[in-house]
């Protein structure tokens, strides 16, 4: 982990530690800024909050959102929950995996995309849904999937 990351982690922890129950907000901010929570962050956060490393690790490992490895530039999450299943999310998912050449929890070789399952984006009236980063997309089809990918890839360049 680069030194700057360590400093950033300490800075985040210091800034937020006064909040009651500060651990989640701190971890979220670290992931927001670094894209993931490196294991080296755990002792830093633990020390700032006066928690044990075990306690912090237990929390990091509990939540699906927290990742210990950096993701691709765009994280694509395809909803797997019932409403989207009723509208063909299985087909969409299979297409996405083939199209990107990766499975869930993997990142494309060019580090552009990571693919994750998600269980409900609250967009169930527009199923099937997916998200790229914070943006939600509804009534997805394989066709629209390709368009969205082109769109976000274009934006990021």
């Amino acid at each position: 982990m680069p030194i700057e990351s360590g400093e950033a982690i300490a800075r985040i922890a210091k800034a937020l530690k006064h909040k009651p129950g500060a651990l989640l907000p701190i971890l979220q901010e670290i992931q927001e800024q670094l894209g993931h929570i490196p294991s080296e962050a755990v002792p830093i956060v633990a020390s700032e909050l006066n928690l044990t490393r075990a306690e912090v690790h237990g929390v990091v490992s509990f939540y699906h959102d927290f990742r210990s490895e950096p993701p691709g530039r765009h994280v694509i999450r395809i909803c797997q929950a019932e409403s989207c299943q009723a509208m063909g999310s299985a087909v969409l998912t299979a297409f996405a995996k083939t199209h990107l050449g990766i499975d869930f929890h993997e990142t494309t070789a060019d580090a552009a995309f990571s693919l994750e399952p998600v269980y409900c984006l609250g967009n169930c009236a527009c199923s099937p849904a997916m998200a790229v980063g914070k943006e939600v997309y509804g009534r997805m089809t394989p066709q629209r999937f390709q368009e969205v990918l082109q769109e976000v890839a274009g934006k990021s360049e």
């Binding site: 129950g21 989640l24 979220q28 929390v59 939540y63 699906h64």
Partner: peptide
């Protein structure tokens, strides 16, 4: 939250809110 359906259960939610 941080991606956890169970945290919709109120006691789990409280634990989570406490940073656990």
């Amino acid at each position: 939250g941080a991606g956890s359906y169970i945290c919709g259960e109120e006691t789990a939610l409280l634990e989570s809110l406490e940073g656990k």
